[in-house]
Structure formats: structure tokens, C-alpha cells
Design a protein around this nucleic acid. Structure first.
Length: 586
RNA sequence: GCCAGCGUAGCUCAGUGGUAGAGCAGCGGUUUCGUAAACCGCCGGUCAAGAGUUCGAGUCUCUUCGCUGGCUCCA
């Protein structure tokens, strides 16, 4: 551990130093450049610049060459401490640096100098530029100054940096490999979903195959939730705007909602969330404490306006289906309920073949007391709710990290985060503590003592948004989904046309038992059929010829390429049914 | 939405100002074959859309649309 940290620190220093070297190189190409910040990041570094013109990819080799010169010159990094006044004079032509100096609370600020280039920086750095190892500038991107849309957009150059050429090559090779798992590519190759410009961006169309996967996931989660005491309902995808004004969503959420539709005297909206619909179901009649926890669930289609640049395949869409639920309960039931939700989520994840730590991790998403625009103001309620969630995580001995400014406007949440093929993190599943809605909707229950009381609400998704979860699964399995999810589970491949009759008989029997089997009856060679079934990631290929037909057996080939010995068809049929029914990970 | 890049047949891609191409897929035929691509032929394109420059534009310029990466945002 200690060794690794040492190595990471060295690498981090090197990456940070490379950012300075890049800044110097950029300054030599653009003397009028203004500098933002340039930190080390995972796998490399970046630096933000304001430049007289837009960079193009052709600029990168030029800057790289300059950097190589600076590294070859082996200039020492010299640290000094100066007063803020002095620093302000030094950076008089650098408005972004001045802004940073202004915000440093200390009297003195740190400078790092290599050759004639000086940067405001607290360090640390490697001792001289010559220590910087294998690097590569990879991309140019716009980035708002200090990450705010209201600020000017600077130009960011991203670089990779590793300790050796080999590590760089390994990294690049791994990226190439990972790219093959991209659900957008696999979705196209395996014909799972498509997009149409006419239908609109961010609005996926599921093909028959994609729909099979989706339906399996949906059936699984509805069955599982029903077993666990959830009441599954249907509510409409549209609602009167008044509903969202009542819920309080409207001011917080209107930027994510589509414009209203005027219909006769009503103003309707596509719903961005389901909670208010569920609350209306709850409050449609008086409720007793005996009915709590009241777990109302729905596979709910939701519509959110995502800026066009934010859309990504199935990961981020404008219309998605959330396995949503709202648990209305007494405050003292919250901890138990949240625990059961996490039990459910972990169960769902395990059935999907996902492991905590490896494939997902917990994030305790907190609010920001100061931000009253984004978060409902009630410090005591936030403190209480955050403590409840933290308690549950600690009780469960879950490993988690805390993140500021990630909460919902109505309360903190536990998010289950997953990474996509490119390493980008997204929320897969979520549990949210809500202390706002019950009041807004006047939700009540009659307690044992015959008085009316206010419940709390837990918002949660179990299997998440189906679209996003499918995207994660496709990437996790690189398209070779577990048998129960595979659109085609068995492909029967006759060796020659004379075996078609036998092949079809097997196909009919399997289909009759609920197995998704197909017979490849095209007038093609067996080899081609095997290749194509293999590329389609069909879990079982049954090759049948003279021998199998005579014996009533099948020759089973797995998509791994492994070939099982010939076995009686009946036995295969049983195995396949058990595999499917048990939702085996394969 | 913003910054940058990209957009050629269903898919993967060639084509750098001078008559739009290949492989795969599809369709028609021949072949009936034992575990990852048989053979022959045919079809298929307003080169994303629109405007401009030019004798001539897939290629250069502008606008729009879409996609990709990043920023912002997020299930």
C-alpha cells in the first residue's frame, strides 16, 4: 500500500509537472495566452487556456514537440513563496490567475518556476523537467472556467502520462479493447436498438431482440418487487402542470421538463418523475398506520429534457423507463425500509452478475446547505436524513464515499454508481430520503393513537432506468448476456439440408417449452451458421447431423467456443430450462 | 446548450478539385457440406441537408441537422 502510494505520488507529481511544461509550450506558441488551471488527473493531466484562436488537432504535435524540448533541457522546478501583492504584479496580465490569488486565504502564495516560465502553484513537482516520462497529448475540449456555464469557455488540452512507453502502450491497447464493449457499438452489431433522426435524438427504438432483453429485466424486477411487498401500479405519462407545482418539483426541475402542452383549458406536461402520481394514489383515501410501509411501484416512463450534448446511447436519453417506487412510511421505519431497499438492490445486482466494489460502489450523495436554489432549505431535516442514510451504510458495513452537492432537492440519497466502458461514472440505482414531499402533498396516516401524522417518503429505483441498466449490462458482458437475457438462447444448426426436419423438430420442442430457440434453415454452410451464431453471442448452438438424428442427440457448442460432448436432446432441454429458470450467470 | 472533431451503400471503410468504389449484408442461382466466412451473378448512393466558390465539388467556404469526445447537467 505504502509503496503504491509512493509510486502514485511520484506519478501525480510528474503529471502535474507535465501540465506546467505544456503551459510553457503553449505560451511559446501563443505568447498572449491566458492561463486557467492545470492539474494532474487519472492517467494524465490537462491545462485550460484562453487563446486568440481555436486549437485544432494539428496544434497538438507542435505543442508536444515544444514540450519535448523543454523536457530535454532538463530545467529545474524552483519553488518560491511570495506575497499576494507581488504575485498579483507578476500575473497582472493573467486575469484567471489573479482571481485565484484573490481567493487564497494565506498571506503568501506559492510559485513554481521552470526556466523563464512561472506558474501560480502550491506544488509539489518533480525536481526538474527532465524527470517527466512518456506523455502524449490526446484531445482538445472546451471547458468552462471554474466549471460554471456562466463563465467563459476555455480551451482544455488533455494529455496522458505514464512511467514508461510500455505502460502507455498497455493503456492505449486496453482502451482499444474497451471500445469494443461500447454498448452503442454492440447494440448496433447485435441489433438491439436504433435511433432515428425523425423520431428524435435521445429517443431509442428497441428492436425485437432489444425488447426481449428489456422485457426479461422488467418481468424479473416486477416479480421480485411484488414478492417483497411492493404494490405495482400504472399511472399516466402526462400530468397537469399543477401537479408539479404542488409537489414543488416545478421550480427546481423546470429546466429538465419539456414545455407545457395546452389542451383545452389544461396545461399538461410529460412527466419527468413519478412521485406526485404515486402520492395522489396514496392520498386517494385515508390511510392507516397499518398500511405502512406503503410501497408503491411502477415501471414508469419519464421524460427529461437533457441538453443535446449530454445524450449518450442508452446511458443518457430523453425518454426512459425507471423501475421506480415510493415508500411511504413512519419515520422510525425508515432505517429498516432503506435496509430492505439496499437488500433488494444488492439482490438485483447479484442476479445481474454485478459485484459490489468491482462493478458498482456506494455514494452517499449530500446536499449543500448554502445552495437554496438547488436544495430545499431545512437544515435540521437535512442533518437528520443524512444521518439516517449514513447509519444504514455503516450498519451494513458497506464501503462508500460521500459526495457533496449530489443530493436531490428534497433530500440526500444513496446512489449506486457504475462505470461505463470508458471509465465514466453514472448512477445505476438510487435510494433517496425525502422530507419535503409529504408536507407538500399533505400526505398523512392515522396513527394508533387516532391522530393524523405525517409520514416520510423514500424514493428508490431497484433495477434503475431500464435503458441505462441495459447499457451497463451490454458493456459488462460485452454483449454475451446471461442465458435468461439472451434474445436467442439456442440456435439449431443442421449440418446439411437433410437434417432440417430433425432440426425443426428440436426447435419446435424448445420453443414449446418457452426456450427462445431458432433454427438456422438457410441454404448456407454449417460453418457460416456457426460463425454467425457465435458473433451473435447465442449461448447454445446445437449442431445436428446424421449421427445426432439417428441417436436423438445434439452436439452442443457454447459461445465460448467450447464444445460439449454429444448428449441426448432431452438432457440438453432440461439443462437449458434450469439454466434459464435459475437466471444463471453462465 | 457550449468548445472541438467527424458524417461516402444496411454495416465496416477506400476515394485530397476532373465519370462514386471494395468487402460484408440483401436478392437470384450453383453447392448439401461435421464446429468461426463455399462459389457465380445481380441489386444497392441527391457522398447528412441546403446554399456558395469554381469550367467542374464527395473533396474548398458558410448555414442547418446528426454523431463522437470534453464542459455543464444527470436515472
Amino acid at each position: 500500500m505504502v509503496n503504491n502510494e509512493g509510486k502514485d505520488n511520484k506519478l501525480e507529481k510528474m503529471r502535474h509537472s507535465a501540465a506546467h511544461v505544456m503551459a510553457e509550450a503553449v505560451q511559446s506558441v501563443f505568447p498572449e495566452a491566458r492561463f486557467g488551471i492545470g492539474p494532474a488527473i487519472e492517467n494524465g493531466f490537462y491545462y485550460d487556456f484562453e487563446l486568440p484562436r481555436s486549437l485544432t488537432p494539428d496544434d497538438l504535435p507542435v505543442i508536444e514537440a515544444k514540450m519535448a524540448e523543454i523536457i530535454a533541457a532538463d530545467k529545474p522546478f524552483i519553488n518560491e513563496e511570495v506575497s499576494k501583492e507581488e504575485a498579483s504584479k507578476l500575473f497582472a496580465a493573467q486575469p484567471y490567475k489573479l482571481e485565484l490569488i484573490d481567493e487564497i486565504p494565506d498571506e503568501k502564495v506559492g510559485l513554481y518556476r521552470q526556466g523563464s516560465f512561472v506558474d501560480l502553484c502550491r506544488g509539489p513537482h518533480v525536481s526538474s523537467t527532465g524527470e517527466i516520462k512518456t506523455f502524449k497529448l490526446v484531445s482538445i475540449a472546451g471547458a468552462y472556467w471554474r466549471g460554471s456555464e456562466n463563465n467563459p469557455m476555455l480551451q482544455r488540452i488533455y494529455g496522458l502520462l505514464f512511467l514508461s512507453d510500455k505502460e502507455m502502450d498497455d493503456y492505449l491497447e486496453l482502451q482499444e479493447e474497451l471500445k469494443k464493449r461500447d454498448h452503442r457499438k454492440i447494440g448496433k452489431d447485435l441489433d438491439l436498438f436504433v435511433f432515428s433522426d425523425l423520431v428524435g435524438k435521445g429517443l431509442p427504438l428497441f428492436t425485437e431482440k432489444g425488447s426481449i432483453i428489456r422485457r426479461e429485466l422488467e418481468q424479473f424486477v416486477v416479480d421480485e418487487e411484488t414478492k417483497r411487498g411492493y404494490k405495482h401500479v400504472y399511472t399516466p405519462d402526462l400530468a397537469n402542470i399543477a401537479l408539479y407545482k404542488t409537489s414543488g418539483h416545478y421550480p427546481y426541475y423546470k429546466d429538465s421538463m419539456y414545455p407545457v402542452m395546452k389542451v383545452e383549458e389544461e396545461e399538461l406536461m410529460l412527466r419527468p418523475m413519478t412521485c406526485p402520481h404515486h402520492f395522489e394514489l396514496y392520498s386517494s383515501k385515508p390511510r392507516s398506520y397499518r398500511e405502512l410501509p406503503f410501497r408503491i411501484a411502477e415501471l414508469a416512463k419519464q421524460f427529461r429534457y437533457e441538453k443535446s450534448g449530454e445524450l449518450t446511447g442508452l446511458m443518457r436519453v430523453r425518454s426512459f423507463c425507471l423501475a421506480d417506487s415510493h415508500i411511504i412510511c413512519q419515520p422510525d421505519q425508515a432505517i429498516d425500509e432503506i435496509n430492505s431497499v439496499l437488500d433488494l438492490i444488492e439482490y438485483v445486482a447479484s442476479v445481474l452478475g454485478l459485484k459490489a466494489g468491482d462493478n458498482y460502489h456506494y455514494r452517499l450523495s449530500l446536499g449543500d446547505r448554502k445552495d437554496e436554489v438547488k436544495y430545499y432549505h431545512d437544515d435540521a431535516a437535512w442533518d437528520f436524513a443524512e444521518e439516517v442514510l449514513r447509519t444504514v451504510l455503516v450498519q451494513r458495513k458497506a464501503s462508500y464515499f460521500e459526495a457533496e452537492k449530489e443530493a436531490a432537492f428534497y433530500g440526500p440519497k444513496i446512489d449506486i454508481q457504475m462505470r461505463n466502458f470508458a471509465g465514466k461514472e453514472d448512477t445505476a440505482f438510487t435510494v433517496q430520503y425525502d422530507f419535503v414531499m409529504p408536507k407538500r402533498f399533505g400526505l398523512t396516516y392515522i396513527d394508533k393513537d387516532q391522530t393524523e401524522k405525517e409520514p416520510i417518503v423514500i424514493h428508490r429505483s431497484s433495477i434503475g432506468a431500464i435503458e441505462r441498466t441495459m447499457a451497463f449490462l451490454i458493456e459488462h458482458y460485452a454483449g454475451a448476456l446471461p442465458v435468461w437475457l439472451a434474445p436467442v438462447q439456442v440456435m439449431v444448426i443442421p449440418v446439411a439440408d437433410r437434417h432440417l426436419e430433425y432440426a425443426r423438430k428440436l426447435g419446435v420442442e424448445l420453443t414449446g417449452e418457452g426456450v427462445r430457440a431458432k433454427v438456422d434453415d438457410r441454404s448456407e454452410r454449417m460453418n457460416l451458421k456457426i460463425r454467425q451464431a457465435q458473433l451473435e453471442k447465442v449461448p447454445f448452438m446445437l449442431v445436428v447431423g446424421d449421427k445426432e438424428e439417428a441417436e436423438g442427440t445434439v452436439s452442443v457448442r457454447l459461445r465460448s467456443g467450447e464444445q460439449l460432448s454429444s448428449q441426448p436432446f432431452e438432457r440438453f432441454k432440461d439443462t437449458v430450462q434450469i439454466t434459464i429458470a435459475s437466471k444463471s450467470k453462465d
